[in-house]
Simulated assay, not measured.
Amino acid sequence: MSDKKLKVLDLFCGTGALSYGLTQSNPSLQVVGGIDLNKSASKTAAKNHPDAKVICDDINNFTATQMADKIGASQVDIIVGGPPCQGFSSIRPTRGQGLEDPRNFLYKKFVDYVATLRPTAFLLENVVGIIGANGGELLNSIILSFHNIGYDVDWRILNAANYGVPQKRERFFMIGKKRSSARTSIIRFPTPTHSFSGRVIGTKVKAKYIQHPNDGLPAVTLWDALSDLSSLKSGQKSDMYAHAPRNSYQIVRRAGAPEKLLLHQAANHSPKMLEVIKHAGHSKSCLPEGMVSSGYSSCYSRLEKDEPSTTITVKFTSPASSKCIHPIDDRAITPREAARIQSFDDSFVFCGSKTDIASQIGNAVPPVLSGAFSEILSEILASKPAVEEA
C-alpha cells in the first residue's frame, strides 16, 4: 500500500473513540471529519482529532454531499460510526419493544452516507441488543439496505476482553465492503489475542459470537489496569501516579500523558452509602439483609480485582446504579479509572462537566477494541478494485 493517508469519516462520533482506536493502531488512517449532536462529546472528539473537522449538529440537517463539502473531502475511504440505539440497549428491561423510537432508525442516515460517498469499507458498531430487535427484523433490514446499495456485509459479536481491554464489554460490529464482483466477498474479523473464562452475556447466535477461551495471552485484569493509580478515600483526588507503570498495559496508557494525572477524583459518598460500600462484595446479595431495598443484583457491589471488569456504564460513580465499587478502596471508581478500564490513553482529553465526562466514558467504544479492526480495514482498502462495478 502507498504512503497516502486513508480518509476516515466518523458518524455519530461521540468522543471519537472508535476512530481514535483505528488511527492509533494504524497511522496510515486519518480522520477527516466527524459529527455528533452532543456538544461536550463533539468538543472531546475535536480535541483528540485536531486535524479533523468535527461538527456539533443533528446529522439529519446534512446530506452526505453537504457533509463532504463541510469537511473538505469529496471522497472518503472508510466510514465508521455507531448510530444511537437507546431503544434496544441491552441494559434496558424493555429492549426491543420500542422500535418506534426514531433513534432506532438513524442507521438509515448511515446507509445514505455510505450510498452517496461510496467508501471502500465501513465499520458500524452497536449494542448486542440490535440482533434481537423486533425479532431480528431490524438487523435484516439494515443488511438488506447495504446489499441494495452494492455492499457485502457481515457481522459478529466481540468481547473487548478478548482483545486486550480490561473489561468484559460485548459489542456488535458490522463490516461492509464495496462489492467488486457478482460473487459475495468473504469478510474477515479480528482474531482474538487474549483469553478469559469469566461469565459473559453472550448471544443465542453462537456462530456470530467470537470467542477465544482456551489460548492466547491472559486477559488484562482490572488490577493490571489500575494498580499504578493512587489509593483514594471518598471525596479525595490525586494528580500523581502512585508509582512507575508495572505492566505493558500501563506503559502504553501512560505514553505521552501530561505530567499531572487528570480526572482521578473520587465521588463524595454520603455516610449511609459509605456504610453500604464497607459491606459490599461481588454482588448485592453480599450485603446484610435489609441494608438496601432496591436495585439490580449487580448494584452496590465491588469490581473483581483479578479479572476483567464488568461493563462500565455512564453511572460508574453511583453504586446504587451499577457495579462500580473499587476492589480495595471504599468508594466508586474515579473517571480516570473508568477511562483506564475503557482503554483510553491517559493523554486522551475529555471536555465538559463531570456528568458529561462520565457519559462520554461510559458510552464509548474502547479504543483498543476498535483498534483491532485497523488491519482488517487496511486489507480491504489494499484490495480495492481499480474500477467499481455497477
Rank of each mutant, 00 (worst) to 15 (best):
R179C: 10
M291T: 08
L144F: 12
C85F: 07
W155K: 02
G290D: 13
E388A: 11
T203V: 09
S42F: 00
S230I: 00
K278F: 02
S231A: 08
L229Q: 13
V205Q: 15
D58E: 00
A320F: 00
N104R: 06
S374H: 05
F12Q: 08
M67T: 11
G135C: 09
T334P: 11
N363C: 04
G176E: 10
G281T: 03
A390F: 13
H212I: 05
G352M: 13
S42W: 09
P119W: 04
N60E: 06
L37H: 12
L303D: 02
P319R: 07
V252P: 00
L261A: 03
S195E: 14
R169D: 07
V349K: 13
L124V: 09
I312E: 10
S353I: 07
L222I: 05
H279S: 15
N363M: 03
P385E: 08
H269N: 04
M240I: 14
K39E: 15
D112M: 09
S28D: 10
V368H: 14
V220Y: 08
P385M: 03
A338Y: 02
T63N: 05
V200Q: 10
D69G: 12
G150E: 02
D346S: 11
S309D: 05
Q342L: 08
D58C: 08
A45V: 10
Y300R: 07
S318H: 14
P319Y: 09
K204Q: 14
K323D: 12
A46E: 06
T15N: 09
V80C: 10
G96R: 00
P213W: 03
W223F: 15
L229T: 12
K109I: 15
V365Q: 02
S301L: 03
K47P: 10
K70A: 11
Q24I: 08
H279R: 15
V314F: 00
I35E: 01
L11R: 13
S227W: 02
D239P: 11
D224W: 05
L287S: 02
D77I: 01
P271E: 06
K43L: 15
H243G: 14
F373C: 06
S42P: 04
A64Y: 07
Q97Y: 02
L263H: 11
A267P: 10
T221W: 03
I341R: 03
Y209M: 12
F12P: 02
